[in-house]
Structures are given as C-alpha cells and as structure tokens.
Design a protein around this nucleic acid. Structure first.
Lengths: 185, 185
DNA sequence: GTCTATATTTCGATAGAC
DNA sequence: GTCTATCGAAATATAGAC
C-alpha cells in the first residue's frame, strides 16, 4: 500500500471549524486547513470536493451542535422555563462560537446556509413551548417572536452595537421576561 | 495642468456603496471601484488611504442614511405610532440594501463597524418613544428590546431562516403589536 | 491626478509521480 | 492517499513617468 490515510473528512471538518472560530469564514482556507491536519493542501481534495463543500459541512456540524444543546436544556413540563433555558443556550453558543453562530443564523447575506430541515429540528422544542403558551394557532408566530428577539439581541451584543450604557445581562433578563409575558405567559 | 481630476472621494464612496449592494463587502475591490468610476485602480489611492478607509466611509454613509430615514418617519406626539414607523423604516432599508444593513447592524464579526456616536444618533427618536411608553427608567431596556426584535426578525427574513410557512408580513405585524404592548403600550 | 508597469502575496484547484 | 510542482486568477499597494 503506497500511502496510508493520514486524515479523513471528519478531522478536516473539525480543523475547519476551529479555523472558523479563530478567524471567521475567510480564515478557512484550504492551505490553513491542510496545515492544521498535517497534510499538504492538494490532499484535502481526496476528502472534500471543494472549499464550499467543506464550508457547508462546517455549517451543518454547527447547527447540529445547536440542536443538541437546545434539546438538552429543554424543560418538558414548564413552557416558560423551557423558553428561557433555550434562548439562554442560544446565547451561550453564540458567545462560545460567534462566527459559527453568525453562519447558522444567516447574519451574512451570501454565506452558506443550513438546510431548512436542520433549522426546523433546532426549533422543535421551542415550538412546543410557545404552542403551550400562545395556543397552537399562534405557536409559529410566537416562536418567531422569541427567536427574532434573542437573535437580534445576541447579534448586537456580539457586535458591541447598542453599547449605550447599562447592564447588558440585566437588559437580557428584562427583555426576556417581557417577551415571555407578551406571548401569553 | 497635467491631469485634471476625473473623480473624487464622494463619487468613489458612492461607487463602492453600489458594489456593496450588488455583491457584498467582498465585491468592493479597488479594481471594481476603479472600473465603476472610470479610472485605473492606482488613482483611487489619491482619494482614499486604503481599502479599509474606503469601507469605513461606506459604512458611515449607510448609517447616516438610516439615521435620516428614522428621523423622517418619526411621529412626535404618538409614541406607539413612532415606534411602528421607525421599525418599518428599518425593515425597508434592510430590504433595499441588505448588505449595507448587515454592516450597520454588525451582523458579521470582524467587519467594519459604525461609530457608537453614529449608532446613538440613529436611535435618538426611538429612545424618546420608548421612554414615553416604558418610563425613563426603562427607556434604554425598552429600546434594546424593540431594536433587538426588529433586527433579529429582519436578519432572519433576509436569510430566509425561519421559513416555516405562514405569512411573513403577518408575523411582523403580530410580533410588533406584542412588542409594543410588552413595553407598556 | 492619472497613467503604465509591476512587485508581492495568496488563493483554489489540477496533473502526474509514487 | 499523499506528495511536488505548477497553473491561473485575483487581490492590495507602490514607483515613477507625464
């Protein structure tokens, strides 16, 4: 056997995810990924079709991570507590992996997007909770309200926008309480 | 006189803004800007220090445009109407210039940001309105709530996230009504 | 102030030997 | 499957003539 495999698609996606976290999508170059996994850049093309294929895999892995996190913190018997726990988990993920968060939530037009099915899976338990509070007829509207507020808040927090003084965590809790109340809680 | 001026900083920023709208920040290359204004790329450096200087000017012009738009639609005697008018104006701007909107609201980590003063100026009349509704003690929290929701909704709308069926304009109106009610309206 | 010419770097991707 | 070698494209920016 001439050349044993020294890397694989999984390890490549992992390295690309780290580079995304460290320097954004632009930092995910084939050269940088190759350095990270310890091979020469042409070898990557035996595991990945092209750069966009790799980036799509990175986004897919990130949205899966979010989905698992949201599923893990849900509270089955308490809709209010479940909503709070899930948006808190969103915020934790965003703080830990801001660039990945931006890709998942589609903050940058023209960047790779997760599939609609993957996004739906992420919001499964949030939809259940908002349905309990707002009624099935408005479950979707209410989920959109919650996610929109949380996403907007998190995005601006990461960008240091709305830096107008005041305690940011206090603003988060104040807003969250109002949002939950607004959808029928 | 050896070479009369065929362009100027204002025209260059304008061309760069058009390129931003058409293809995002990555499309704003010195070459593309030069083609657009009708000169060779080295000539641009007589009007602009470097590319980041140009991009910063583009962002500044965009936030000024937003500020003017928000000031124009405000309703002085009616806080609820003023809030609705201003978030509607935000949404119109985002639909007209999605890439510019993303830069202004800081959706992409690592991109050029408007100055805090410019952002504050944009939110002046919104703060006045939320102060009326929520009380001065919570004017800032309430403004953050409104802007966060609007920004999150708009961002996801532009990215086709939360595309889970239902009328998107109806969701906007439903959410907006709840938000205004939530802050004391 | 604009031009030609160019330095320099970096990128994605391919060819072909082993 | 990995490697060396390389192509071709595109980018920012500078030097110096006019």
């Amino acid at each position: 056997m001439p050349a044993p495999a020294r890397t694989g698609r999984e390890q490549i996606v992992e390295a690309a995810s780290m580079l995304l976290d460290e320097g954004g999508a632009d930092a995910v170059t084939m050269q940088a990924v190759a350095d990270r996994v310890g091979v020469r850049s042409p070898s990557l093309y035996k595991h990945v079709r092209h750069r966009s294929d790799l980036l799509a895999a990175v986004v897919h892995a990130a949205v899966d991570e979010v989905t698992d996190g949201l599923a893990a913190v849900r509270v089955d018997g308490d809709a209010r507590a479940s909503i709070v726990a899930q948006v808190d988990a969103m915020r934790r993920f965003a703080r830990a992996r801001p660039h990945a968060y931006a890709l998942v939530m589609g903050a940058a037009p023209g960047q790779p997007r997760p599939t609609p099915e993957a996004m739906r899976a992420s919001l499964r338990f949030l939809l259940a909770a908002t349905g309990e509070l707002a009624g099935e007829a408005h479950a979707l509207d209410a989920a959109r309200l919650v996610v929109a507020w949380a996403n907007g808040f998190i995005t601006m927090e990461l960008a240091d926008a709305l830096q107008m003084g005041g305690d940011i965590d206090e603003a988060w809790r104040w807003g969250l309480a109002r949002i939950v109340a607004a959808i029928g809680g």
